[in-house]
Design a protein around this nucleic acid. Structure first.
Lengths: 365, 365
DNA sequence: GGTATAGCAGAAAGCGCTTTCTGATCCGGG
DNA sequence: CCCGGATCAGAAAGCGCTTTCTGCTATACC
């Protein structure tokens, strides 16, 4: 149906080899000949068959991007960063929604291997499934063995059954633990001593690291852990709401609630509001990630910014192999505490009307 | 490096042809033989080379998905719907960010053609670029001619230079105009007579259709169009803010503001709030799309719901050719008016509480 | 003027698979 | 007992490209 290389060659009056060389520009071709070929290409609307090319060169112009949920802006932003940087090399990004299921992650990895993807970027915290971990490591090993680059963006290095790092992986690591520690430290330094926490989904490394950071800050400040309840959520709005409810049930005197991410933070905000609790006068609230909408909440959410777009871009470059991998395969990404309007010093006894807050001034990107 | 079909054949003691047949299950193979093959496949961790397969069968297991911006939840949700439905056929979705540029759209189309994508789904309103339109139609024609399915999701049918529909395209059409009409009609029926409007980007069909619907409702209600200013925005928060400012400058007596989409609606909400204008008491606000966050705004945003996930799924099925195309190639998607807390009847005379305007430094993306 | 050397272009092999065509085996029926 | 038709398996061609190897024509140099 479509024109092929041989058709172009015939039309230009040259051999297929010459056409190929003109197209790839990796071999000297006389200018006049190249002209003829270009003309023929244009006339025939010729487009090289990527499959044939990939077959002989043993690698395609595809990079796989595994995300938990592409409808979640957290992943959308990362994906757009990746897309951005790989597009410069005319490489296509294949976005795969795993729905946080290790099984689907595995089957996508296999599919990507089948397409001989040039690289794959796994984003977001890893999902723990002991049964599948062996198979997971195997896929990753197989992938790197066949020359594909594997980049972990926002998830910790993968270790095999013996706890050894799987070789050849590159990690773009978000500083979740320390970011969380600094966030909660901000709250304790404001004078909060009864701080609730809504975690992310169980078994997700991101949830765990952030929780650890939070607990570190709690201990550093010498707070009574019994007064600082932790409930588990799922990194979404709904779990933010129910989490806030549960937290208040456990400790009605809470003066601050930290959510595992911004999404849950919004849920907390909504729930508190619907209960007539004013933020930050009555309770301070904080999130994590600094998603695009986080500065538009009311009040604007205090959070920890992760430069997601930039991290995505870096991951993309790493995936293409354009950027030499960092020493040790680990490239840390700095987080930054963003204090906005949802956090303030605790008021003495909840029901007092402590000062009004100034209308929000926003942080530019 | 990786095992190939011949290796599996050798190990199983059969011919390559037999292995292929076992893997594809399209030809009778004795049970015992199939067993041997399966064992060899497992032992060698064999994964078929999709490129080789695509080369001979002349079509790959890839569908392209063109979006304006994957970080925007509007597209994220659609993309996840598409992904969802094509994944069932072990087909991979290639997400391409066009950044609303017709040139990039074109180059992605070419890239997708090169990969011999099985189908491509173009989402979101089309971008108007007269210079590139011819080339655009050509790519689409070439694509359908080579047997690929082309689905337009949320954009109107494409017409060629003579205004004729390009054949073979399937359109999943959002009912933007009528949705917008009903939304503004809701406002007029509430008693609003001075309604401002913030459009989407110029030259985008979605913007245009929604604006048309709005104006229809304005006329239907017999309002004075001079009192109903329209300012242009870009479907993002920042333009919602600036749009609201400009609208109030043009008509300080506005009792309602309609934004072209939810994103801009949030911007409007934020801006009004920072000016001390209370929603919906002083001014009603409405958006369009019903994105996941729209019910979490304060107050919850009245909007028009488009079943984006479902539309994405349908587009995916259409792209795979699993669903027979609708008559006329046009499949309408119903929208639904969602009245929430941001709209209410206008109050008599606003200046009762028109607050001080706080300086707010905004960042555009 | 003859040979060495660029500088280009073509022939052909082969990437890993699918599929048609051909062939071998086995069964039942005449 | 032999033949025809199932039933299954192999041989081989070829999908559209890249790339090595080979070869040809100029040019340069002695």
């Amino acid at each position: 149906m479509a024109a092929k290389l041989a058709d172009v060659a015939a039309r230009a009056g040259v051999s297929p080899a010459t056409v190929s060389r003109v197209l790839n520009g990796n071999y000297p071709v006389a200018h006049a000949t190249a002209e003829k070929v270009h003309r023929a290409v244009a006339e025939l609307h010729y487009v090289v068959n990527g499959n044939a090319r990939a077959l002989v060169s043993a690698r395609s112009d595809l990079v796989g991007v595994l995300v938990h949920d592409i409808a979640d802006p957290f992943f959308g932003v990362i994906a757009s960063g990746i897309q951005d940087s790989v597009a410069e090399a005319d490489v296509l990004a294949v976005v795969c929604n795993t729905g946080s299921s290790a099984a689907r992650e595995l089957s996508y990895l296999k599919l990507l291997r089948k397409q001989r993807a040039r690289a794959v970027v796994l984003t977001g915290g890893s999902v723990d499934d002991p049964d599948l971990h062996g198979a997971f490591v195997e896929q990753l090993t197989e992938l790197t063995a066949s020359g594909a680059h594997v980049v972990l963006c926002g998830r910790p290095p993968v270790t095999d059954a013996e706890g050894r790092d799987v070789p050849g992986l590159v990690t773009v690591d978000f500083d979740n633990r320390d970011g969380a520690r600094r966030l909660t430290a901000h709250l304790t330094s404001l004078g909060h001593r009864e701080i609730g926490y809504v975690t992310g989904p169980e078994g997700r490394t991101t949830s765990q690291l952030r929780l650890e950071g939070h607990l570190m800050a709690i201990r550093d400040a010498g707070l009574d852990e019994a007064r600082c309840p932790v409930v588990s959520g799922r990194f979404d709005r709904a779990s933010g709401s129910t989490g806030a409810t549960e937290l208040l049930r456990r400790n009605p005197d809470l003066t601050a609630v930290v959510a595992g991410n911004d999404m849950a933070g919004v849920g907390v905000l909504t729930e508190l509001r619907s209960r007539g609790i004013e933020v930050p006068r009555d309770i301070s609230v904080a999130g994590f990630d600094d998603l695009p909408f986080s500065s538009d909440t009311v009040p604007a959410l205090t959070t920890v910014r992760i430069p997601l777009t930039e991290a995505g871009r870096t991951s993309g470059r790493l995936a293409l192999g354009n950027e030499s991998p960092p020493p040790g395969g680990l490239l840390p990404v700095r987080t930054e505490l963003l204090v906005r309007d949802s956090t303030a010093p605790p008021s003495r006894g909840r029901n007092s009307t402590s000062g009004e807050r100034a209308p929000s001034a926003k942080a530019a990107e």
